[in-house]
Amino acid sequence: MSLKKINQVKSDRGFKIWDLLVYGLILAAAAALLIAVFVRRDNNPLKGIIITVGEETALTYDFETGIAEYTDVEQGGMIEVEQQTESLFVFSVRRGKHYNRVRIDKSARTVKVIAADCSRNDCVYTSAIKDNSGMIYCSPNDMKIMPYDYHESPDIII
């Protein structure tokens, strides 16, 4: 390296205005990328769910208050409660001879169908509802579980 170049480098020590501008832009780009990744996801926590059979509401469950509203099978409703603990609520949604067994995990705020008597058991294979884009639909038994603030999922199985 020539003496002239060494002197030039020495005199350039510290940050010039262009260095600051470029570093600033890099930071802004990183922040924008992070925001872009997280804003696209609808990961709002599940507030509650509504279970319908046909056009009738069988049960609603509110995670905020922990209140479940339903009518028991014995009182002419469609819900047969099997287990109710601090963290779990397991029940069957019954219509005639048909049923879908549902587990609500109160602490994890998830809802899943764990057994059913429908032919293909698609509802049982459907992933648990974890946020507002989840939904479980059992076509043979006409049973649907939807979040309060339902957001349509971009993933469809045909």
Binding site: L21, A32, A36
Partner: peptide, 16 residues
């Protein structure tokens, strides 16, 4: 480099 950063910002904004 500055132009690249601007492009990245615009791309990120477009994604979101």
């Amino acid at each position: 480099a500055a132009l690249l950063c601007c492009a990245a910002c615009l791309f990120a904004a477009g994604c979101g």
